[in-house]
Design a protein around this nucleic acid. Structure first.
Lengths: 198, 198
DNA sequence: TTATTTCTAGGACAAGCGTCCCAATTCGTC
DNA sequence: GACGAATTGGGACGCTTGTCCTAGAAATAA
């Protein structure tokens, strides 16, 4: 098998395992077991566990970027596109109920480990933040686009955390409705709404 | 030293380390190092790591219960008391920025480890949920008290997660303001407000 | 075909882990 | 003061971890 193919397999397996078990808990042996290669071969592709983490974060960044580009094409209005972001909670609902948000749980774990890759992992939040900010600007909220983006990020993070704890579909549905309504309010009151009404 | 005193020291040290480093990352040696006892002595108090975790969760439950009882005495109105909950983000702000929410990060970690104590850890959320529900009922929101409680839990979880990632005081301040405003709205429109306006 | 690089397998390594045992010390009670 | 119980210290265990080495197989180039 070509080097890149094996490498990509390793990254994909690590991505999945880091999500489901966490970074710390996942061992070289776990990943090698999934990919079905020896540890020696493994070492040829990644010298340290941190190198795999970097590659996984890079992959996640690319995946999210691609996702947002798709939303950009498919969504007719900025509101549609932001709704696509909110809908992650539906699309990935089952996984989120089981393992939480892939971004939030990773950044939390790395913060506790005081890991060097914290900054890189935070970029995962930032790509969404930047993209959402742009959408809110297009919605006519140039003045507080970044604030709105952060607020929405926080809302979906909170929903994901509690979805993970309680696996309560009714709760998730209510949070979704609440975010949709909030978004409509954002669109309606472009640059006139008071921040306190967020 | 009496057995209980040493035991309590161990639990306190474990509580702190589990919060700052995570459960998985924290070893027997770490805890023993902080308490300054030998591993052999350690074993006399706790036979397994899971036993320590159970004790830590128990302690956290008791601590939170005590905190809420204090709020119950100090807060004159239900709104005041709920505000005390929101204010955790201020009171424990520095720690949250560094290590995240002690409850949210623990439940997330245990979910990934698929740990037997998941249910116990979730009780930490539930004590707040139950207490908040009661406050919302006293606020006159008998019909949707639990929904409001869950919503507020999610909001503060989300704020904590992003506070941890970005350490952005302005963001935290905005989220606090937003939650205060939402709470005022809850109080004003007792049992008349539409859920979509949450 | 030969020569050279790339890839793979399997094992060795030192360190750290949770767990466990046992001998020594301290404590409480008669 | 003496005795049994509770507490403590230190070390041993088997296992897993991340890391690293080396020898051979496969692929590529000449």
């Amino acid at each position: 098998m070509s080097k890149k193919a094996t490498r990509d397999e390793i990254i994909a397996a690590a991505d999945d395992l880091f999500y489901r078990q966490g970074f710390e808990k996942t061992s070289f042996a776990d990943i090698a077991g999934v990919v079905n290669i020896s540890r020696g071969n493994f070492y040829h592709h990644f010298k340290t566990k941190d190198e795999i983490l970097d590659a996984v974060i890079e992959k996640r960044l690319a995946d999210r970027q691609a996702m947002m580009e798709k939303w950009e094409i498919e969504g007719e209005t900025p509101e549609d596109r932001i709704r696509s972001f909110i809908d992650i909670l539906i699309v990935n609902g089952e996984k989120i109920k089981r393992y939480g948000c892939p971004i939030g749980t990773l950044t939390s774990e790395l913060a506790k480990l005081n890991h060097a890759a914290q900054g890189e992992a935070n970029k995962l939040f930032t790509v969404f933040r930047t993209w959402l900010k742009r959408q809110f600007e297009m919605l006519g909220r140039e003045d507080d686009a970044d604030e709105l983006a952060m607020h929405l990020l926080a809302r979906s993070q909170g929903a994901a955390t509690l979805a993970n704890a309680y696996q309560d579909d009714a709760f998730i549905a209510r949070e979704l409705e609440s975010m949709y309504a909030w978004l409509s309010g954002c669109a309606a009151g472009a640059n006139k709404r008071e921040r306190a009404e967020m």
